[in-house]
Amino acid sequence: MAEPAAKTAFAEEALTHLDTLYRGALRLTHDPDQAQDLVQEAYLRALRYQHSYQAGTNMKAWLFAIMRNLFWDRFKGSRKDDVSLDDVGEFVLYEKLRDEGARPEADVLDKIAASEVVSAVDKLPPLHREVVLLVDVEGFSYKDAAQTLGVPIGTVMSRLHRARQQLQKSLYEYALESGIVRPSGLGQVPQL
């Protein structure tokens, strides 16, 4: 059993990663109450198993792994036969927008609201969503993401690739629906 001072120091360090865990849990559960329950349970479990944490290693990755394993146990019954994104096909938003005659960065990215990006991330299947959260949002290396998720680096790369394709496709569809870009041949929406 850890000494009280060591326990407090461990808890304080662990709490510096609370925002990462909370937003990860929120993106996985889509529910603030469930996210708080999940994160609280993850912290209690981390405290219980703090002897298995090696000081100096990546605590954020260790905590995230505990949280996401709890998520899969609690909400998915450990079943990771997730929806496949194999049928997305090759979709490169940049090239698609160029084909539409838009200036991809200035005309489109600058006009997409944060809420639409979050919505596109939320629509990804959980196995793909969590890779985007780790690599794109939290800045994990492929290696750290692979360790956190318990999969080979190649799996991280392929899930990330498919997730980004789906994400770009969702953003493209939003850009079309909202009139930020027009379908081929119609050109750019004039600025008022």
Partner: peptide, 26 residues
């Protein structure tokens, strides 16, 4: 695009009351 995804999803922070509650529990 990568920055856009990061900044959009980073907007969510743990509520202060939840942080305080966790600190007490831990």
């Amino acid at each position: 695009l990568k920055r856009l995804v990061k900044h959009s999803c980073e907007c969510d922070k743990a509520p202060t009351a939840f942080r305080d509650k966790l600190r007490q529990i831990l």
